[in-house]
Design a protein around this nucleic acid. Structure first.
Length: 424
DNA sequence: TCTGGGGTCCTAGGACCC
DNA sequence: TCTGGGGTCCTAGGACCC
């Protein structure tokens, strides 16, 4: 132990989407709420007082009655609001610790290596400052590896009252106590399938997994499980990534508001999703070499014919030009579409992304022109200044007839001037 | 009528090369 | 009697995460 030991904190917002809705509706502090997926499909977030009555992922149309019975309020998801609140939370955390890795919309790892213990007061400070500045409750888990910090965070949420929302297991006695108290399925990286396998091997608790032989786990399953076990023993195996790394693929897919049988509206949808994906491609400064177009019918309705097809299309050269990628995607759609089906969803996936200068120009097929780059820059800067969709390809409708249902949407409290709070 | 969206990493197996 | 072996690259599919 001559090396300075690592210390990580995981900060995680409690019931993030539901909490965001509550921040701007203090009248709902005591009202249980759920947030629905796009298209008002199923439940993706629940306030703690709604959890006993609603499962994660339950279809909204099946539970409407139950919600009413228990006085639970439903919201459509308002990603503009959640994204904005997320940035505020991250900014607060960044102001209190040396380095932050934003892990998801509602979670961040902080690297506390080199800071002096005790860490619990820092955890409490993060908690109270996020609460004060954003109105959102968070939990903090602190430990020597990221997997252990996740588990500590899990404990902070589960025993919120006893722990005050902060759990520090940098001490090995406390760490082992927690490992013994947690089931193996509570461990980050152990999903449903792996839980089944492990239980069959007699590995039931997080402690059992920490004690298992890493080499056996590697041979039997994979290096992923091996790393998880080593992390539980306190050996860091996962890298901390403070920098946001460029995505290797970019996907835009949505269910339609209702089933589509003709190709015309599906063309609009594919054009819309392609444009969105290309914006994200340019935002990270990449080019793409292939685009995949997929369409599918509903999966659950037993009496209608099912179909899910996709086509990977090669682009003539690496590009980020919405016009070219759309053209190729449209040709792909013509190939995968067939009449006689009721399609419910389309997806556009940009593949084989590369950074500029990372590929060799082909003498015969050429490369993206400077004009093309300039056009896209102007395109993006106009939309940045005047709002999304100010300039768009002509195949992209403003208010599509096939757009998603969002009947229970809250206002854009922090992102729309016309929807700000009015204080009387 | 109505069941999300966006990713990552790993492995196995085939093709191909020397 | 005898039927190599090692390496790389690619793709599809599984598992997991939030």
């Amino acid at each position: 132990m001559s090396e300075p030991s690592n210390v990580y904190a995981l900060v995680d917002c409690n019931s993030f989407y539901a909490s965001c809705e509550r921040v701007f509706r203090p009248d709902l502090a005591k009202v249980p709420i759920v947030v629905l997926s796009n298209n008002d499909g199923c439940v993706i977030a629940r306030s703690s007082d709604a959890k006993p009555f609603v499962k994660m992922g339950e279809p909204y149309f099946q539970i409407k009655e139950r919600l009413k019975q228990h006085g639970i309020l439903a919201f459509s998801s308002n990603y503009a609001l959640y994204g904005d609140m997320s940035q505020r939370v991250m900014a607060v955390i960044e102001g209190l610790v040396p380095a932050v890795e934003v892990y998801s919309i509602d979670e961040a790892f902080a690297d506390l290596t080199g800071m002096a213990p005790p860490f619990e007061p820092l955890g409490q400070q993060i908690r109270s400052r996020v609460q004060l500045y954003t109105g959102l409750p968070v939990g903090v888990g602190i430990a020597g590896t990221r997997t252990l910090a996740k588990l500590a965070n899990h404990a902070a949420k589960r025993w919120q009252r006893q722990t005050g929302g902060v759990v520090d297991i940098t001490d090995s006695v406390r760490r082992d106590k927690l490992l013994k108290a947690c089931e193996v399925s509570d461990v980050w990286g152990v999903g449903r399938r792996m839980t089944e396998h492990l239980i069959r091997m007699g590995i039931k608790t997080a402690w059992d997994l920490a004690q298992a032989d890493p080499w056996t786990l590697r041979k039997r399953f994979s290096v992923v499980v091996e790393k998880t076990a080593r992390e539980l023993r306190g050996t860091p195996c996962l890298e901390f990534e403070e920098m946001t790394v460029a995505k290797q693929e970019i996907c835009c897919s949505r269910m339609f508001g209702h089933r589509l049988k003709n190709i015309e509206p599906i063309r609009e949808a594919v054009a819309t999703y392609t444009a969105r994906a290309c914006e994200r491609l340019r935002a990270q400064g990449s080019l793409c070499k292939k685009v995949r177009v997929s369409i599918r019918t509903g999966m659950y309705n037993s009496d209608e014919p099912k179909l899910a097809t996709s086509r990977v299309c090669q682009l003539p050269y690496p590009t980020d030009d919405t016009r070219l990628i759309t053209k190729v995607a449209m040709a792909g759609l013509e190939e995968v579409f067939s009449p006689g089906y009721a399609f419910s969803k389309a997806e556009v996936l940009l593949l084989e992304l590369c950074q500029r200068g990372e590929f060799t120009d082909d003498m015969f097929t050429g490369a993206q022109t400077a004009t093309s780059e300039k056009v896209m820059q102007v395109f993006d800067s106009i939309n940045a200044k005047w709002g999304k969709g100010t300039v768009r390809p002509c195949g992209v409708p403003v208010a599509p007839e096939w757009g998603m249902r969002r009947e229970l949407m809250s206002p854009g409290y922090t992102t729309r001037l016309d929807q700000l709070w009015r204080v009387k």
